[in-house]
Write a protein that binds this DNA or RNA. Sequence first.
DNA 1: CCTCCATGCAGAAGCGTCTTCTTGCCATTC
DNA 2: GAATGGCAAGAAGACGCTTCTGCATGGAGG
Lengths: 345, 345
Amino acid sequence: MGSSKGKKTSKGDKQYVSALQVAKHAGVSRSAVSRAFTPGASVSAKKRERIMEAAEALGYQVNDLARGLLARKSRLVGLVVTNPELGYRAHLVAALTKALIHRGSVPIVINTGRTEEELVAAQKTLFGYRAEATIILSGSPPSAFVELARRNGQPLIVLGRSETGADDVNIDNEGAGREAARFFLGGGAKRLGFAGALSRTPTTVEREHGFRHEGELHGAAVMIGNGSNSNYAGGQEAAQQLFAGAQKPDAVFCVNDLVAFGLIDYVRRHTALSIPGDVSVIGFDDIPEARWDAYNLTTFQQDATTMAAHAVALLDRREADPDCPPAHERLGTRLILRGSARTPA
Amino acid sequence: MGSSKGKKTSKGDKQYVSALQVAKHAGVSRSAVSRAFTPGASVSAKKRERIMEAAEALGYQVNDLARGLLARKSRLVGLVVTNPELGYRAHLVAALTKALIHRGSVPIVINTGRTEEELVAAQKTLFGYRAEATIILSGSPPSAFVELARRNGQPLIVLGRSETGADDVNIDNEGAGREAARFFLGGGAKRLGFAGALSRTPTTVEREHGFRHEGELHGAAVMIGNGSNSNYAGGQEAAQQLFAGAQKPDAVFCVNDLVAFGLIDYVRRHTALSIPGDVSVIGFDDIPEARWDAYNLTTFQQDATTMAAHAVALLDRREADPDCPPAHERLGTRLILRGSARTPA
DNA sequence: CCTCCATGCAGAAGCGTCTTCTTGCCATTC
DNA sequence: GAATGGCAAGAAGACGCTTCTGCATGGAGG
């Protein structure tokens, strides 16, 4: 009969148990149950045990929604990311979710596009759940985004990009670009190439800038090839541009490892040049694929676990003092020497 | 002075705006605000507009925590996954988060180990937030997990594994194994090999079983090589075992693409055999790397987007009728012909 | 002009939790 | 023996929201 009335009285409607039910079952007051689950509250050991038994028997679970409502702290943390399945970003998402859970937070992953509209929608969702913080993994948040977060008092952490009004964790892209150029020139390279992408993210721009600047400083020509995106296919497109003319580069710095793989495969398939004999290649990120025999890629290491740890540290810091000035962390990168680039003597 | 008193009156403590403040600002009652944000509620257009203006001016955001508390529906959906950065799983996580957001749900990603202890802890977290459902992406949930979910009335969806007491979305692993064997034999192979992993997940077991059974049915010997894990390194280990003796396989079916890449690289580097001339290789998953020139891998396609869509459909179905019997969806796979395996005439 | 109904809206109850506030009890101290 | 302090525990209120109930208001019809 209940089923005819619909959801409310549906027979199979298993309900979560509330603290009141536990209290009744254990013969105590609601508040006693609450205290029993709060570390450091004053409850006698005997009563606590009785309550815990009742809770166990009934399958009671503290309702974090209600708790968050009252405490104004939800323990939810939002990750906003585009294409979380690609290359380094997959590792970053994994490291962050793990670090957040370890910290006692609960990660919400918003997989969305890069348009301002979509990003603001993602933010609204996170505001709605009173997320304690938002971490942006990719792309640059529009200024409206930063402003809204500030206005609602929601900490914002930006990864892989410097952001004036928010905490950020970044790496020394320009420095890495310069180091790549010096490494190539020290190995005897004469004509440098940079394989980037048309979607000019700050990351791409900085790496290119450092590389080009240092190269030209030493009197080397620097050619640029840009694929549509910074992935394998983009690497092939960039290679096509770089190796089309008579003047071909003898050392190419790729904006990331995926691009490097695409470029390497293009060179092997469409030219007679050997790697690293005729062309040195350096990538960026040091994703596991870089270690594969087929590529054995010399690349800059950017450890996702470290970056995640720093992001979480910034979270802690801002929780302790919500009004502290924005922190801008700059992590170092390390060039991992493998077989795709000639090594200077 | 406020700062000395601590958090409560801290000066920088920006607060979220409540419906009451909006009501006061717009000169209406709290309930009017609530109705204005509820589609289909009875509010005059004029009043609704006035409320919306006030909400906009104050930066009001409906509190989904409170809403979920009352409605007993949080719109949160938990994804429980191990190593979400690896291979196919990264794509599955991406597809699921996207599909869930599109549906209006909010994905919580619990990145955890495979031990029963960790899985149950993940589940407790999700219960605490009254997640509407749990989706398990990897590994087999312990029976305690299934039982607890049922008891709390929380739908459970298992991907890539059949589970009696819960909804699941799986693929025809045995069928694919058989198809691989037939494909190899049709191409003239005599000695079959299977590259798997010591961690014997249901997936591995089923693929191996189908492959071996069909092979032996046609009188072919089937050798087995198992790496420690089902990744690139594991593929190299498996290759080492398979190609150590005098009797080397001339066709190898790999439990997934990553294993196939490891195996291919091992063969190229440590043997004089050519692919596909001397050894045919088939992988599983069809991750983007399979298309890379270095591998050009013939492999079974398992579309993450499709699987995610089916998972979400199961969610909808169970929401409509929480008591419906468990559904077991079996998706087909398609062999993508590329260059790593000899094709039957 | 009066009645009736539809409609819009304010008020109150309730969701499950935590946090005071208050009361009662026991042990300690003078 | 009385006063004090500390601890345990129950009652009540608050958090922000939705929904139910009932009261006005206004227009249509008799």
